[in-house]
């Protein structure tokens, strides 16, 4: 098969995430990356962008943090750059100014969430510095994503595979199962699984979660395990399920506030300075 395979993180890249090397705790990195993906998702909805572009952006976003530390770039800037780039890749380019306006709103609303009072958004002035600063950040972010990913921005989305697998399992009649699995695939975009596992494994995990939740029986006793049809390993499928289910756990107010206050690299650096010696003890 001559079709080029999409890149996945190597073992070394998984074990040594650049942010962790800089002293950022893994759970905080996980939260920040998930929040960055939520911002991309929000921006996509406000811009009426296609889901293929949003999903591609989220996957590129996750790839980026396997080669770059959150100390060097903020999740706001890189998310914006990823969405801009992905929209070109999916042949539905965005206007820079629209994207910048939407991100400005989202970032300001996020930082407001830590203070009291109603949120009021005042649009930036047309030729103001805010616009030009964000525009520079956007151009740099897009270029940095390309450069650090070696210009290999080939992304394969899971939706077509899900449809095929559901057909194969004779589940297309169960609309609830299909839409639930589809939803798990979309939620999984907030986790790094699309850079850790091949698409068949992720799709199998989404089907596993959906069918278990709806108590739809599928052949699951060795030697007849349905996921083997799709060349997925049980441990991998189970690990992907774990990543997805972790998204739904209850979060404390403090955890939420901590993330909303760390959208730029400056915030991350400040946090590292304040918590640096504590983390160093581990």
């Amino acid at each position: 098969m001559s079709r080029a395979l999409y890149p996945l993180a190597s073992l070394e890249q998984v074990e040594k995430s650049p942010s962790r090397e800089d002293g950022l705790p893994p759970d905080l990195e996980e939260d920040l990356r998930a929040y960055g993906c939520k911002l991309i998702h929000h921006a996509g909805i406000l811009l009426k962008q296609k889901q293929v572009a949003v999903a591609t952006a989220q996957i590129l976003f996750h790839r980026f943090w396997f080669v770059t530390s959150l100390k060097q770039f903020g999740i706001g800037d890189i998310g914006m750059g990823a969405l801009y780039l992905a929209s070109k890749l999916e042949e539905c380019p965005l206007r820079m100014r629209d994207l910048i306006n939407v991100y400005d709103l989202l970032l300001r609303r996020a930082s407001h969430s830590n203070s009291t009072g109603d949120f009021k958004y005042t649009p930036m002035s047309y030729f103001g510095n805010t616009f030009y600063d964000l525009k520079d950040a956007l151009v740099v972010a897009e270029m940095q994503i390309l450069k650090r990913l070696g210009f290999d921005v080939h992304v394969v989305l899971p939706y077509g595979t899900l449809i095929n697998y559901m057909r194969l399992l004779d589940l297309t009649g169960r609309e609830d199962a299909v839409s639930r699995a589809w939803g798990y695939l979309n939620d999984a975009l907030q986790t790094p699984v699309y850079v850790l596992y091949p698409v068949p494994t992720i799709v199998s995990a989404a089907i596993l979660l959906a069918t278990r939740h709806l108590q739809i029986p599928l052949p699951s006793t060795p030697p007849n395990c349905w996921w083997e049809l799709f060349d997925a390993e049980w441990e991998d499928v189970w690990a992907v399920c774990g990543y997805i289910m972790r998204l739904y756990r209850e979060r404390s107010k403090e955890d939420q506030a901590r993330v909303a206050g760390m959208l730029t690299k400056k915030d991350v650096r400040r946090w590292l300075e304040e918590h640096g010696h504590k983390e160093g003890k581990h």
């Binding site: 996945l8 190597s10 396997f66 290999d152």
Partner: peptide, 9 residues
């Protein structure tokens, strides 16, 4: 068989 993430040289 999947390539790893490789920054541009």
């Amino acid at each position: 068989l999947y390539p790893s993430l490789q920054p541009a040289r």
